[in-house]
């Protein structure tokens, strides 16, 4: 069982952007793109983080809160805890796949590129030039389009706008995406309008990570993001009324998005 928290040495740390680092760990996992691990930062917290490479295990983390800040302070040779992989990843259908990544949401999408049977088009979006990462990795197996909110690199646009242009001018069998929920909200509007199947990686506050505590369950279906998700299909996204509207915080209280 991979559910017992075990600690592994950090072998390598790469600064991807001013706020994002990739940690390479002394272990490897087998799994599906889009799955996540629970990462224990000893003495601080344990948080779900998507997998940016399986063998060796890599996680790519943006400094946003207490746990990620503490993780960013770790050095090569330090230990962190890992359990997983957890959840349902992406299930690619068809040949032509449009991949949309926003901000640190780009990270798990890189693992899709190992699939040599698909024709990938990738949109990478970030606020500014210095926050774009993994571009070269994607280019090895995909047509890559970059956009930034401030226009400092690539096209000056939101990832959703660039994605809609591509959808209007090309035929895709499906759209997969990971990024801020506001981006996914607009992107879902676009994929619904153009009748393209989508799979999005979603986020909610998690405690156990294995479907036991129920904290990340969704209204009104009761699906657990850690177990039935984190990747949800268009058909599922239509049924979950809380997506793009509200979520629950650490106490379980509903908060507007």
């Amino acid at each position: 069982m991979n559910d017992v928290t075990k600690t592994y040495k950090i072998l390598e740390i790469k600064q991807e952007t001013p706020t994002i680092k990739t940690f390479t760990l002394d272990t490897a996992l087998e799994g599906t793109p889009g799955q996540f691990v629970m990462v224990w930062v000893p003495g601080v917290d344990e948080i779900p983080i998507s997998i940016s490479n399986f063998d060796p295990l890599q996680i790519t983390v943006k400094e946003v809160g207490e746990a990620t800040k503490a993780l960013h302070k770790k050095r090569i040779g330090d230990y962190i805890g890992i359990r997983g992989p957890y959840g349902n990843g992406f299930g690619l259908v068809g040949e032509r796949v449009l991949v949309v990544g926003g901000g640190v949401g780009i990270a798990p999408l890189r693992t899709l590129m190992k699939n040599k049977n698909k024709q990938f088009t990738v949109v990478l979006g970030a606020q500014t030039k210095s926050e774009i990462f993994f571009e070269e990795d994607f280019k090895r197996n995909a047509d890559v389009f970059v956009c930034t909110d401030d226009g400092s690199y690539g096209k000056k646009a939101f990832a959703t706008q660039l994605a809609e242009e591509l959808i209007q001018n090309n035929r895709y069998d499906m759209v997969v995406a990971c990024g801020p929920e506001i981006m996914l909200k607009y992107l879902f509007g676009i994929t619904e309008k153009h009748k393209i199947n989508a799979q999005f990686s979603m986020e909610r506050w998690m405690k156990c990570g294995v479907g036991l505590c129920g904290h990340c369950s969704l209204d009104p279906t009761g699906w657990r993001v850690c177990k039935e998700g984190p990747v949800f299909s268009s058909e599922q996204l239509r049924k979950v009324t809380e997506f793009f509207r509200y979520k629950r915080d650490q106490s379980g209280t509903e908060v507007e998005l």
Binding site: V4, M38, W40, E46, G81, K207, V210, L212, C213, G252
Partner: peptide
């Protein structure tokens, strides 16, 4: 799940550990 008198976050993770 147990309901309390006022909003409470509970402990930080890890909150549950899994063994055989």
């Amino acid at each position: 799940k147990s309901i309390g008198p006022k909003k409470r976050e509970g402990h930080s993770n890890p909150t549950v550990l899994f063994f055989d």
